[in-house]
Design a binder for these strands. Structure first.
Length: 725
DNA sequence: TTCGGGGAGATTTTT
DNA sequence: TCTCCCCGAA
């Protein structure tokens, strides 16, 4: 952003100090700018000293960017300011205080995979067949309990069905196991500080004094525990400033509660509200399209973005047959843009709903020699080989961690199979000892021979490195460990081609550790583990390379690009049913579309494929095409995509069939809100539209007739009236 | 008892 | 496309 002066409303928001402050900042209205200027204002005017400021962001990347920009504004020391994500701030707090809750400082953080592994053993232990409840399903339910702050007791008492009772049981066992493993999950990172505040008022007091001024970015995406965290801290001094945009709340599935921003005034009476409505990012056409879409939402604060960058071009709409053609169409449009507007590759982003959608795009980009960066997908730190080494590290730091223990006790294969492990678990339970400790006592478990030796050897190597923890630097330790355990050898000597990649990933991981150590010379391994646990791919993304960026719309939040492709916009039938059931879901999807649109500065291309293949392409949930029709027609320009040759389709039986291109008008004249007449069901109102080409569907609520909500074909509908626009 | 091949099933978004 | 699980071989 240019180094201009702040505009009037920005300036007012920056200088408002004393009362709680709520800033509604629309897309591209200089939200980060206001926050960073506010911090600088606080420091320069000596309103609070840097160490008393807490600034919370949503991603590590946003935190780093904020740090950087604050550092440029204030020349002096900025390192004293606490800037970080909720999760990292809370993790740091717990590192210092968690003993009070009966954990040790060496606690480890479990990610989804660890969580599922733990749940799997729990489900096995409770004799619940996985056909009844899957580990991940149980995990999602538990996370929901935790995010809604439902304690185990309540979960049990309010359980009505057999399934609910089972889930409450699993919830209880899971919480017990976590604590026994001296481990916390992502939800705990937010919940445990609240528990601390409640049970140890002196801790709350300490942090209230420490963080006297609190700033929160992306406030619309806070969930209940996050809200309570800042509320508790800010309650006394009431020095708090939150910035957000209810139109960009897209994390409802993770417990984000849009009421946090809409009802901020209730939580902090006497607050001052500011609204930033000048958009410095997108052209008028893009803004108009985005605004008309999101305006259909019922739950939203009224505001109107004004464009500052001229009208710009219409939005391009491209229909293709399948995902391959869609990818080619992206390349096509991209090359045209490069030729006409002399744009570098880094000017483009392709956004989609689910990571799986990147595959076809990747193929086409590679074929056409277009450099690209993919954000997301299988995250580096979630790869098997990396998780294996991480598991060794976690186990060494915290020997109570049974999830990591199970993961590596027989990796690389050393002859300890499930039977041997079962014996160990049973023995540990009988003797009330930690699982790790009994490994050194195979005789007591009547394990002999090869297995006994292997157990002892495994115990010895972990113990050895646990003792070296203090003596070696993190870099040295990881390197030695990777060699010593045989993990490196396992991949190096393997014949399998994919193990080559794995070996190289381990090498990359090792240099990653070195890099971390260079940045934080005094760091201990626990700090490295913590950083890695909270890292995401978007954090590592840098825009210096001249490459096209591919990522999900969620990952794109907070970013901007001159040209944005929104790919895979066709819809499945399922979300349509869901849309009829849940208005909230519909509104969130709409906001997702809005976020996608407003990432673009100059030009948006909307793409959808009529016959996307189910697997390896389309997500089950589809995306947001039902909102294309909400964009004013004169803002859209249909672009005909024609691949050079007609596509050859090879069917399963090996027949070659030529696919002909057809143009089909989408959605005809129907709009959401239209009153329609159905030949059988009578008069109704359109709630949602879906699909494309010949598969178009419409969801209608009928006033009379047998059924209330139905999904019907366009062919059977007649339009009666449109709402006044 | 462990290991490895091969078949079957499963897929949102993220800290 | 990737992961998990079952089953036969060592």
């Amino acid at each position: 952003m240019k180094k201009e002066r702040l505009n009037a409303s920005q300036k007012a928001a920056v200088e408002a100090v004393g009362n709680p402050v709520l800033i509604f900042a629309g897309a591209g209205s200089g939200k980060t700018r206001v926050l960073t200027h506010k911090i600088s204002h606080l420091v320069k005017e000596k309103i609070v000293s840097p160490e008393n400021i807490l600034a919370v962001t949503f991603t590590n990347k946003a935190a780093n960017e904020m740090k950087e920009r604050v550092r440029k504004l204030i020349k002096g020391k900025t390192s004293a300011i606490s800037i970080g994500t909720f999760h990292s701030i809370c993790a740091r707090l717990l590192r210092n205080e968690i003993q009070k809750l009966g954990y040790t400082r060496d606690f480890v953080i479990y990610d989804i995979q660890d969580q599922n592994a733990l749940l799997k053993t729990i489900l096995d232990g409770l004799d619940i067949p996985k056909t009844d409840i899957s580990p991940s399903g149980a995990g999602q339910n538990i996370s929901l309990f935790k995010n809604r702050m439902i304690p185990i007791k309540k979960a049990k008492s309010q359980a009505r069905t057999v399934l609910d009772k089972r889930l409450a049981e699993i919830y209880e066992a899971y919480e017990k196991a976590l604590k026994k493993n001296n481990a916390v999950d992502f939800d705990d990172l937010l919940l445990l500080p609240l528990k601390l505040f409640e049970k140890h008022p002196e801790v709350l007091k300490k942090y209230r004094e420490h963080w006297k001024y609190i700033l929160v970015d992306e406030y619309q995406d806070t969930n209940r525990p996050q809200f309570l965290f800042i509320k508790k801290l800010a309650e006394k001094h009431k020095q708090i400033c939150v910035v957000g945009d209810d139109d960009q709340s897209i994390y409802g599935w993770r417990g984000a509660d849009i009421r946090n921003i809409l009802d901020f005034e209730k939580a902090f009476p006497g607050c001052e509200t500011y609204t930033l409505e000048k958009n410095y990012r997108s052209t008028g056409e893009i803004l108009k399209a985005a605004t008309t879409v999101v305006k259909n939402n019922l739950k939203r604060a009224e505001k109107e973005l004004q464009a500052h960058n001229g009208e710009g071009e219409k939005l391009g709409l491209i229909e293709t047959n399948d995902e391959g053609e869609e990818a080619d169409a992206v390349v096509n449009a991209l090359e045209k843009e490069i030729k006409i507007n002399k744009r570098p590759f880094s000017n483009f982003a392709v956004l989609y709903r689910t990571n799986a959608q990147s595959r076809a795009l990747e193929d086409s980009f590679r074929r056409n020699g277009i450099p690209y960066n993919i954000i997301g997908g299988v995250r580096f730190y979630e790869r098997k080989e990396i998780k294996d080494i991480m598991a060794y590290l976690k186990l060494i730091v915290n020997r109570k961690d049974t999830v990591s223990l199970r993961r590596v006790i027989n990796f690389p294969p050393r002859g300890i199979g499930s039977k041997t492990l079962d014996k160990c678990v049973a023995y540990a339970a009988k003797k009330k000892r930690d699982l790790f400790d009994v490994l050194n006592d195979p005789e007591g478990m009547e394990i002999r021979g090869k297995q006994a030796d292997a157990l002892k050897e495994f115990h010895a190597i972990v113990t050895k490195y646990a003792e070296l923890l203090e003596k070696l630097s993190a870099g040295e330790l990881v390197r030695a460990l990777a060699e010593d355990t045989g993990v490196v050898r396992h991949y190096k000597e393997s014949e399998m081609p994919e193990d080559r990649d794995r070996f190289e990933n381990i090498m990359e991981f090792l240099s990653g550790v070195d890099e971390f150590m260079a940045r934080n010379p005094d760091a201990i391994i626990q700090e490295f583990l913590e950083e890695v646990s909270l890292l995401t791919d978007i954090d590592q993304w840098n825009d210096e390379d001249n490459r096209v960026t591919l990522m999900t719309v969620h990952a794109a939040k907070g970013l901007e690009f001159p040209v944005v492709f929104l790919a895979g916009l066709e819809d499945g039938l399922f979300p349509l049913y869901q849309a009829l059931e849940a208005v909230d879901q519909l509104e969130e999807e709409r906001r997702l579309f809005y976020v996608g649109l407003t990432r673009a500065k100059d030009k948006v291309y909307l793409l959808y494929a009529k016959n996307r293949r189910r697997y390896g392409g389309e997500s089950f949930y589809g995306m947001v095409s039902r909102f294309i029709h909400e964009i004013p027609e004169d803002s859209l320009e249909k672009i005909n995509f024609s691949s050079a040759v007609t596509r050859k389709l090879v069917t399963k039986k090996g027949k070659v069939r030529m696919e002909l291109k057809r143009t089909v008008t989408i959605f005809d004249d129907f709009r959401v809100g239209d009153t329609v007449e159905h030949a059988i069901f009578g008069i109704g109102k359109i709630m949602a539209l879906s699909g494309s080409g010949e598969n178009q569907r419409v969801g209608v609520v009928f006033k009379d007739g047998l059924k209330k909500k139905l999904i019907v074909r366009f062919a059977n509908l007649k339009k009666v009236a449109s709402p006044e626009s």
